[in-house]
Amino acid sequence: MTPCAAQRAPRRTSGSTPRAVGILLGFVLDRLVGDPRRFHPVAGFGTVAARAERAWYADDRARGVLHTVTLVGGAVVLGAAAERVVPGRAGRMLLTAAATWAVLGGRSLEREALAVHAHLAADDLPAAREQVTRLVGRDTAALDASEVTRAVVESVAENTSDAVVAPLVWGAIGGVPGLLGYRAANTLDAMVGHHNERYERFGWASARLDDLLNLPGSRLSGVLATAAAPSGAGAAVRAWRRDAAWHPSPNAGVVGATFAGALGVRLGGTNTYYGTRVEHRAVMGDGRATEPADIPRSTRLARRVGIGAALVAAAYVASGRIRWPSRRSR
């Protein structure tokens, strides 16, 4: 190769390969192991967040902004510091793999969904109703088998985006700080981002930040769900274009609609939550009502979406961090 040709060749930054490989390793580890039963890092963050809430809670947005910025910012700073001090390329790869595994929840989501399916397959509806409370916050006491199934499929769709695709996106964009910052924001939304008397103002910042951070992940999830179910691709696209905007969440609507179209079922409808809150959500998809066999179908689709997201994230890191020499250096 001539000197001029060498100058024209692209140069990859030193951190791209460890990050790409680390993301893939972390994804594989989640698929093989799932969440740890004890001492989960996300649970530890939740404990810290709960203590912080007790210390500075007030019924106003300013305190909620302080809560969100401090905890999410702290997670980002922690990730950046860890990346800075870890030794060598192998160290960065292992750190990225560990962080990716810690923030992903795909395998555990699949286990919970299939546990509900096992109860339904055994005609044990009361046990299925109890099991599904681990996935959704609805009042499940009066749900029939179809409604239990719908709750599971909707949870699989939404959490595939929130707990698999979106973390991979932010890991590709921001490395370990992106992974930890995203998971911190998502965890805070689950803790305080609710429309109720206590959190309407205090949880506003956490809910809005989570919506913002999930925008790219939900769109990628929709694309991958469409691509992963070729026989239902047209229905998935139609449901996305027609139904997604009617969902109260700018992100859950996208993944719910595309999963409904890809699986050939109807999602959405009336949800009753503990207390007196009832939500009437738009129906998504043109298919039939859900039935128990749709649960393993949804987890298989979610698995394909997760694999696609991991490959996209790694490819983005590997190809998107190329620096071309400036004209002055030629």
Rank of each mutant, 00 (worst) to 15 (best):
W324V: 08
V48M: 13
A244Q: 11
R8M: 14
D124P: 12
G174E: 02
A52S: 12
H117M: 09
R84D: 06
T68K: 10
V76D: 02
L66P: 00
Y182M: 13
W101S: 04
R201F: 02
R138L: 07
F259K: 14
A184W: 04
P177I: 02
G106Q: 00
A190E: 01
A62F: 05
D35Q: 07
A151D: 03
A5I: 03
L109S: 09
A318N: 03
V169I: 04
W101V: 01
Y273P: 13
D144H: 07
A314Q: 00
G46R: 13
T258W: 08
A302N: 06
Y274M: 08
A233N: 13
Y273K: 14
R37M: 07
G253C: 11
A5C: 08
F39I: 06
I295W: 07
S326V: 02
Y182A: 11
A185D: 02
W324Q: 14
I295N: 10
E147R: 14
V153I: 03
A102G: 09
R51C: 05
G105Q: 00
H40F: 04
G175R: 07
A310I: 00
D60M: 02
R31A: 03
E147G: 09
R330L: 12
E147A: 15
G105P: 00
V265Y: 09
V265S: 12
G88D: 08
W204F: 13
G222R: 10
A113R: 10
A207K: 14
M284L: 15
R11W: 04
A127H: 11
G91W: 03
R138I: 01
A128D: 10
I23F: 01
Y274E: 14
A185H: 07
P248E: 02
A141N: 05
W204P: 02
D286L: 12
A163L: 00
A82Q: 12
L212M: 12
R321F: 05
S161R: 13
G232N: 14
F39Q: 07
T13M: 11
G275I: 09
E200S: 10
L29Y: 03
V254P: 13
A58K: 13
G181S: 11
A207C: 14
A293I: 01
D189K: 11
N271V: 01
D139C: 10
D286Q: 12
L94Y: 03
L125Q: 08
G308C: 03
R328M: 01
V103A: 11
G287T: 03
G193I: 09
S298L: 05
P10Q: 07
V164L: 00
G73L: 07
S16H: 04
A97N: 08
G320D: 03
Q7I: 02
W240N: 13
L224C: 05
R201E: 00
A233C: 12
E158C: 03
